[in-house]
């Protein structure tokens, strides 16, 4: 089990043009990624690639990532995933 992801965390919103990213520790060895999106049929590949790329940059190899996308542009999605993963990697919540 990955030690990087220490807790559940989320980032983003369900506003149009944004995405809500929820991260949880995972028992598996991989990134368990699930994306729900209206634009899925036309952007699924790009969205999966971006999430994996962000996870790789942060050194995360195992996590459960749930995304509800509302048509976020790629840089928005990457920013939300980065923040959600970083929050999940922190031991405690810093207010």
């Amino acid at each position: 089990m990955s030690t990087l992801i220490k807790r559940c965390a989320q980032a983003g919103s369900l506003e149009s043009g944004d995405a809500l990213v929820q991260v949880a520790p995972s028992d598996g060895e991989k990134l368990a990624l699930h994306i729900k999106s209206k634009v899925g049929p036309r952007f699924s590949k790009s969205m999966h690639e971006s999430v994996h790329a962000v996870a790789e940059e942060l050194g995360v190899t195992a996590a459960a990532v749930e995304i509800v996308d509302r048509g976020a542009l790629d840089f928005v999605l990457r920013a939300r995933v980065t923040t959600a993963l970083r929050r999940a990697m922190e031991a405690e919540i810093h207010e």
């Binding site: 634009v39 036309r42 952007f43 699924s44 590949k45 790009s46 542009l73 790629d74």
Partner: peptide, 10 residues
């Protein structure tokens, strides 16, 4: 440049 190119429809 902002959106990327959509994948073709099935």
């Amino acid at each position: 440049k902002l959106t990327g190119k959509p994948e073709p429809l099935a």
